[in-house]
């Protein structure tokens, strides 16, 4: 179990919205730029790590009950994405690390893989 606020700290990341989710604990991590793969998961309490910064990333998370998204490779969240995420209580975090590096840090911290 990992606290979201610790993820932000360890990855030198920036919280874009959903600050009230920072004290929550997450169990699992899943990294993908393919939303079709994300939509096949039935895991709760998951952090999505992705470099895909468009509206469908937020929509996919909304449908999949994913409350935390970490954008890697310095991908920036658009205003539209931010608004949709806020509406759905999704916490958005931006980080400049590569997906590989971010995942390595998250794994070290104790986040578990889905499979």
């Amino acid at each position: 179990m990992v606290k979201v606020v610790d993820v932000v700290d360890k990855l030198n990341a920036k919280v874009i919205c959903g600050k009230n989710g920072l004290n929550q604990d997450i169990d699992f991590g899943f990294a993908s730029d393919l939303m079709s793969d994300v939509l096949t998961l039935d895991t709760d309490n998951l952090l999505l790590v992705t470099g895909l910064n468009n509206l469908q990333t937020i929509r996919t998370s909304e449908m999949s009950d994913i409350s935390f998204i970490l954008f890697v490779r310095d991908k920036k969240v658009s205003q539209e994405m931010k608004e949709l995420a806020c509406e759905n209580n999704i916490t958005l975090i931006e980080c400049s690390y590569s997906m590989f590096k971010a995942c390595a840090v998250l794994y070290e911290m104790g986040l578990e893989p889905v499979y």
Partner: peptide, 9 residues
């Protein structure tokens, strides 16, 4: 580009 089209839908 939108994150779909992998033949999984």
């Amino acid at each position: 580009e939108m994150g779909f089209g992998a033949g999984m839908g």
